[in-house]
Design a protein around this nucleic acid. Structure first.
Lengths: 176, 176
DNA sequence: CTAACTAGGATAAGATCGGTCTGCGTTTTA
DNA sequence: TAAAACGCAGACCGATCTTATCCTAGTTAG
């Protein structure tokens, strides 16, 4: 029917990590490596989220991204629109006005208002958008928190810690 | 967000003409010329509608397409699926299982069931599909019938008639 | 100063989309 | 009986989108 890009999927999963990170910024590279995503690709997604006011960036050495709002105030619709750029589901070509019997100019009764076909698509689009707007980051994050064992969050903190220390103590690339 | 192809738009507008044609077959070429659509392109859309059981084809010289079911039993969802081929809105890459701290094998708690992100998208997709399923060809056709003046349908019949007679009496191409 | 960050542009492979053209089989009709 | 009008299938083409990768420039902590 239509396709939602993987950029959206990557973006949402990253934001979910930021929910659990409690205000501390995470770099796009760390988020990518943590999830097995292409770092350079992810680096192109975050600026879009920042422009939309979903995350806040801090530049410089220990910089990264953090959520700009509370998770419950970030809907899936916000994210999708930020990343994919609010394109309409259907863009009407105004076929109704092209009827051959009209000749050059279509009469007003044929072209006024919204095309019936278009209207049906707008309704469907609205239904989808309403559903996305009703789902927040917080909703999905708490669902995840329920299935993940407490141990897991410790492991993740450790993984992040290793990265950090590896960078500050060794002053170089990690061993191959 | 996502995009519905113009093939769907063309297809639906053609089907609406078939609603008004009351069982008599119309050729894809006539439907294209009547609406200012590329005939060769439209010719690629109709076989899909036929395979889906939405229209019935009659081959040969005075052949064409007619609706295979009643307009009220043809939903927009049927048409979209027939033409675009029921692709999912979102195809989950299972990012949740790729977490670096899992190492090679992700634990079962992380990969069982439907991913929370995926679930949200499925819900949105269902909302859209439900909306499309709730709209039938008949709904839109009657809406059109209300705004079109009676005169119009006469003009269209005449236009079709001219095409037919032009083809049968002159045994050749129409004058340039 | 340097390494770790973000921001943004250039580029490229692959897929999809809108559209054209050709060739083939079927059916009516002159 | 042959031409013309039809449907069907596939090859092709250019434009655009998607998913990357790489490179440069600017910013900041240690």
């Amino acid at each position: 029917m239509a396709h939602m890009t993987v950029s959206v999927e990557y973006g949402i999963h990253c934001l979910l990590w930021l929910v659990g990170n409690d205000g501390a910024p995470m770099s796009s590279r760390d988020l990518a490596d943590l999830q097995g995503i292409s770092p350079s690709f992810l680096a192109k997604i975050f600026p879009k989220l920042e422009k939309a006011g979903i995350v806040a960036a801090s530049e410089g050495v220990r910089g990264g991204y953090r959520l700009a709002r509370e998770p419950k105030d970030i809907s899936f619709l916000d994210i999708v629109d930020a990343i994919e750029g609010r394109k309409p589901l259907f863009d009407c070509q105004e076929v109704r006005g092209r009827c051959a019997v009209f000749g050059d100019a279509a009469p007003r009764w044929a072209t006024s208002g919204v095309c019936g076909v278009h209207a049906a698509m707008l309704k469907a689009e609205k239904a989808m958008r309403d559903s996305l707007a009703a789902t927040s980051l917080a909703d999905v994050a708490t669902g995840f928190g329920k299935v993940a064992p407490a141990e897991f969050f410790g492991d993740v903190s450790e993984w992040i810690g290793e990265r950090m220390s590896g960078r500050t103590t060794r002053t170089g690339k990690p061993p191959p």
